[in-house]
Write a protein that binds this DNA or RNA. Structure first.
Lengths: 117, 117
DNA sequence: GCTGCAGATCGACCGTCATCGAGCCGACAC
DNA sequence: GTGTCGGCTCGATGACGGTCGATCTGCAGC
């Protein structure tokens, strides 16, 4: 008995009226939303935002030893932020002897920029 | 004696050579970086990214009761995400009787879009 | 061999966030 | 008045993220 308990008439509105026409799109590509959210989350830190800004303005490979004095954080912390940016596909690195150089991969930022219109 | 211990010649490179020319800009407007990072952090969640996408595509005020069935999360959780988006200045809300309607404030997204170029 | 340096990684601490249920409040119908 | 519904707020909890010191890895020079 009471098998229709989960099918109770919960669709009954306050007085049968609707709040607004149901024209919202039912599904928006979730995969793209997940990728864009990952890029946005990587940019969601002031230090990482400034890091990307410096690398974008320089328009070339920048040595880590030049990035450290720009921020008042320890070197391991900066390395951690660069690793997060690289995991999100925003930047990439290249080692030359002692030093490491970072540069921007424009694809991720371009996709976010295209979504913003 | 040894008063110049803190001023030791730490500038001495490995062999006197520099890793790269010091042309990185010393300071990038930190306030703007903080604002952009706040907007990006608010977008750094798949559900919030889809929420903004729905509100942008609808180009009008959307009732919360229409947003709830689009995601498999509880209604308080959706309200939490909307609150975060509103705190970041991305959306705003307006109550009409029983229902609440949310809409996009384009300024925040426009600033991020302008920075992305 | 040893020493020093640039950068990455690890472990730990602590703050913030996402999620949920429970409860509260305002508006409407009766 | 009471009941009901839509939505928000409050706690609690588990997970994630930023930061640091300490340590490790390569590399260059002695």
């Amino acid at each position: 008995m009471t098998v229709d308990l989960q099918l109770a008439p919960k669709t009954k509105r306050a007085a049968g009226e609707r709040c607004c026409e149901p024209v919202v799109l039912p599904d928006i590509d979730r995969e793209q939303a997940a990728r864009l959210a990952e890029v946005a989350k990587a940019l969601g830190d002031p230090i990482r935002m400034q890091l990307v800004d410096v690398l974008r303005r320089h328009a070339g490979k920048v040595c880590v030893c030049e990035l450290v004095p720009l921020f008042d954080i320890a070197q391991p912390t900066l390395s951690h932020h660069l690793k997060r940016l690289r995991a999100a596909g925003i930047v990439d690195s290249e080692r030359q002897g002692l030093w490491a150089y970072y540069y921007v991969l424009p694809e991720a930022l371009d996709e976010l920029s295209a979504w913003l219109g």
